[in-house]
Amino acid sequence: MAAFGTEFTQEMVISQYEDGQWSDLALVPVEPFSLHPATHVLHYASECFEGLKAYRADSGDIHLFRPDRHVNRMLNSAEQLLLPIPDETTLARALHMAVAAVTDEIPVNPGALYLRPTLFGTEEDIGAAARPSQKATFYVLTSPVGDYFAGGLKPLRVKVDDKAQRSTPDFGEVKTGGNYAAAMRQIVRAREELGADQVLFSPGGIVQETGAANFILIEGGELITKPLDGSVLPGVTRDCILALAADAGLKVSERDFTVAELLERAPHGEAALTGTAAVLTPVGELLHDGNCVKVGDGAMGPWSTRLREQLCAIQTGAAEDKYGWRVPLNT
């Protein structure tokens, strides 16, 4: 199978906003958009998106994983960006419609169908720098994906940056391309200079998250992660891991913690990144101010292994879903 996110189905769901109303959801072929050079999104980054998965269980049944949380997060992103957006019911229907159209292309476990709902401003006006777009496009693109770690799950090397910011203090909760673009330079530089896989943004010495995933630390029976204060993305996978950790007996602490505390506790514990694509990925080394701190023994720890396996089993339908996270495909 092609690299994650580079293979697409032949159909997508789309709706257009103009003159104060949305058009009916339509199933159309996946093909390039035609945009005027003055289109709002090209100049003022008026866009947001989501990423979630649909799975084919061993029984053959198809389900979406926590689509309600992704819909709610997209509604929040659109509100923060002042973008028009279809209502909650329509967004949910669009996701089911997109999956139902390509059921034959959904891979079996460990593969899945990745969904990318996207919203962007389409008004043709380069003078609208301080005014939201009055036109918009919403669509749901789908991509059959295999195991994100087809070559084997390997602990990451992560640079801890206590100066750079991933986003502005109250805009980190918005899933918009601008936040990813702002983090990219730091990530590429860390890769080139240190061989790092990611950057853990910790402005002012307070640990936040990496450029593309939430961050957790597990040590001494406690799981610690940055609280949802607007500066970090309210990750759906993060929420799942916190619930599973609490049920497994870990003390879950959503609180601010410093780089100093992280580096002190990491050698005796575990650290990981959480996100839709990679689920839970272990961190083996932390790089800070010319020093390399090994996390635990450098390998994936027992808690990380347990939590990842539990979540994957629920996602794929191999384990009981007492949380109600799996939503059967509504055709």
Rank of each mutant, 00 (worst) to 15 (best):
P227R: 10
T210L: 08
S231T: 08
A246R: 15
A212R: 12
G220P: 03
E209Y: 13
G221P: 08
L200M: 06
L223G: 00
E219T: 08
G211I: 02
V232T: 13
A213M: 15
I224F: 14
A248S: 15
G205E: 09
C240R: 00
I218S: 01
A248T: 09
I216D: 07
G204V: 11
G205Y: 07
Q208K: 07
A245G: 11
D247Q: 10
F201G: 06
T225Y: 12
A248P: 09
A246N: 06
V207Q: 04
I206H: 12
G235P: 02
L233D: 15
T225V: 12
F215H: 03
F215Q: 00
E222D: 10
L233Q: 12
G220N: 12
A246D: 14
P234F: 09
T210P: 06
T210R: 10
P234L: 13
I218T: 04
V236G: 08
I218A: 00
I241W: 02
D229R: 13
P203W: 10
T225A: 14
C240A: 04
L233G: 14
V207L: 14
A245T: 06
A212F: 11
F215N: 05
G205Q: 11
T225K: 11
E209K: 03
D239N: 11
P203H: 06
L242G: 09
C240D: 03
S202E: 07
Q208L: 12
I206R: 05
E222T: 14
L200E: 01
S202Q: 08
T237K: 02
G220F: 00
V236H: 00
P203K: 14
D239V: 01
F215L: 06
K226A: 15
D247W: 01
D239C: 04
P227E: 12
L228F: 03
G230C: 13
P203M: 10
G220E: 10
V236A: 02
E222W: 00
L217M: 15
T237P: 01
L228A: 04
K226E: 09
A243L: 10
L228H: 12
S202C: 15
L242D: 06
S231K: 02
P227F: 07
G220S: 10
A213S: 15
F215D: 02
G220K: 05
G235C: 09
A213G: 05
L217Q: 09
S202D: 03
I206E: 07
T237N: 00
G204M: 07
E219H: 14
E222L: 06
T210H: 13
L228K: 09
G221I: 15
C240Q: 01
L200D: 04
G211M: 01
T225M: 08
N214E: 02
T225S: 13
S231R: 01
I241A: 03
G230D: 07
A246K: 11
G230K: 03
I241Q: 04
P203D: 13
Q208W: 03
G204H: 11
S231Q: 12
E222C: 14
L217P: 07
T237G: 05
E209M: 02
S202G: 09
I224N: 06
Q208R: 15
D229W: 03
G211A: 08
G221A: 07
F215C: 04
L217W: 06
S231C: 05
L200H: 10
C240E: 02
L200P: 00
N214R: 00
